[in-house]
Each structure stands twice: as structure tokens, then as C-alpha cells.
Design a protein around this nucleic acid. Structure first.
Length: 216
DNA sequence: GCGACAG
DNA sequence: ATCTTGTCGC
């Protein structure tokens, strides 16, 4: 795995800022009608090996209809705000391996809830040109607004996503990745079962299981 | 300057 | 994220 580079990180931060300057001019969104099949992506690690998983999930059947995975070298260390350097490349390839059609990609990581509005889910959705939703287990930026089972998360007074209570007392955070607006988030989470999205939970377990089955 | 910080 | 068994508790 390559070591951190101040010059490279500075450049990609500038790139994120430039991308947002352009995207924010006309943030597009689509109506998600046909949500029968959705994709989910996650990455697990075993030493310096990255194990990326992409699955296609049938929402009506409540089970996966396709599973693809890919192993490669971990490309870059984890740096808050630059997670895409580490996970987007293998995730993208894994998703591209899917042969089924899907209409929404669930990503393990933030979307707009990012210091520069350019979380992993935004990058992946942008590259794929398809709707994407960011789902994270902890907050990178933002403050939680009031709510019983769910509520808004805002950054400098602007709502960029929502927090949701898990049935086990925890929380998870959801924000638009691409081709979605913030106000579509609560409805989407409801459609996904009002709980931590099963497809992501499944992809998470699968990636970890595969990673641990690899040679140390 | 100090702390916070997706996975 | 990952290294890791049993254990406390609903």
C-alpha cells in the first residue's frame, strides 16, 4: 500500500472542491419508481488486501440475487474525508461486475454529509451515472437535530442528511450520494425497511467473511 | 493550539 | 477497518 502523500491529498481535496462547485450548480435528482432491485457495496480488509463486494438485492424477495467480489491490494491509507482514495476503485470494479440491472446503489459511507459534500457515495454515483445513497454508522461532520426515531443532520445550518435509530439502540446516518435530494432520504429509508438497510448488512458480512477466508 | 475524524 | 473469547444483559 502506498504511503500518504501531502501533495496528492492536497490535490484531491482541490478536486473534490472543484467537483462540488460544478455539481452544486444543478444538483439533479430522479424519481425512484422501480426499486425492485438495488445494489450494495462494501469493502473489508485482511492486512494489505482489500476485498470489495457488490451485491444485487431483490427488495420484494428480501434476498440477494447476485454476489460479486474482487480482491486487490489496499491502495491508500484511510484518511478522513478522502475515503474514496482507498475504497472507490475496488468498489467501482465490484459493482461493474454485477450483471443484473439495478436502480439504486447503497454505499457504506457518507454522501453529502462530508466536509466538501463529496463523500464516497457521491463519487461512486457520479462515476456510475446512477442514483446512489450514502449510509454510515458514525458521523464525519454535522450536528444531529431533534427527533424520536429519526431526525435531521445539519452542517452549518443546512440539512444534508438524516440520522436514524437502529432497533438495537445504535444509530446510522443517511445522505444523498447522487441523483437524489436530501428530502427523498426519509422516504427511501422507509422503503428499505426503516432499519439499517439489509443489503448493506449482507454485503458487510459477506465481505468480512471473504476477507477472513483469504491467506494472511 | 487542540481536538475531531466515514472505513 | 482490524486484532479477538468470553461474557454481561435484555
Amino acid at each position: 500500500m502506498s504511503s500518504r502523500s501531502e501533495v496528492l491529498e492536497e490535490f484531491f481535496i482541490s478536486l473534490q472542491e472543484a467537483m462540488w462547485r460544478i455539481l452544486s450548480r444543478s444538483w439533479e435528482s430522479v424519481e425512484l419508481r422501480d426499486l425492485r432491485r438495488i445494489a450494495a457495496a462494501d469493502v473489508a480488509y485482511r492486512g494489505d488486501l482489500a476485498l470489495a463486494v457488490a451485491i444485487c438485492w431483490d427488495l420484494e424477495r428480501g434476498e440477494p440475487v447476485e454476489e460479486k467480489w474482487l480482491a486487490c491490494e489496499a491502495l491508500y491509507p484511510y484518511v478522513p474525508g478522502l475515503l474514496f482514495l482507498r475504497e472507490a476503485p475496488p468498489m467501482l470494479r465490484a459493482v461493474k461486475l454485477l450483471e443484473h440491472e439495478w436502480s439504486l446503489l447503497l454505499v457504506n459511507g457518507h454522501g453529502l454529509l462530508h466536509p466538501r459534500r463529496m463523500g464516497l457515495a457521491v463519487i461512486l454515483g457520479l462515476v456510475l451515472g446512477k442514483p446512489a445513497l450514502g449510509v454510515a454508522k458514525s458521523l464525519l461532520v454535522g450536528v444531529e437535530g431533534p427527533g424520536e426515531d429519526w431526525g435531521p443532520v445539519e452542517v452549518s445550518g443546512e440539512i444534508l442528511g438524516y440520522w436514524f435509530k437502529t432497533r438495537s439502540g445504535g444509530k446510522f446516518y443517511v445522505s444523498p450520494g447522487y441523483l437524489l435530494t436530501v428530502d427523498q432520504v426519509p422516504e427511501l429509508v422507509r422503503i428499505l425497511g426503516s432499519r439499517y438497510p439489509e443489503p448493506l448488512a449482507y454485503a458487510d458480512k459477506l465481505s468480512k467473511r471473504l476477507a477472513r477466508s483469504l491467506s494472511p
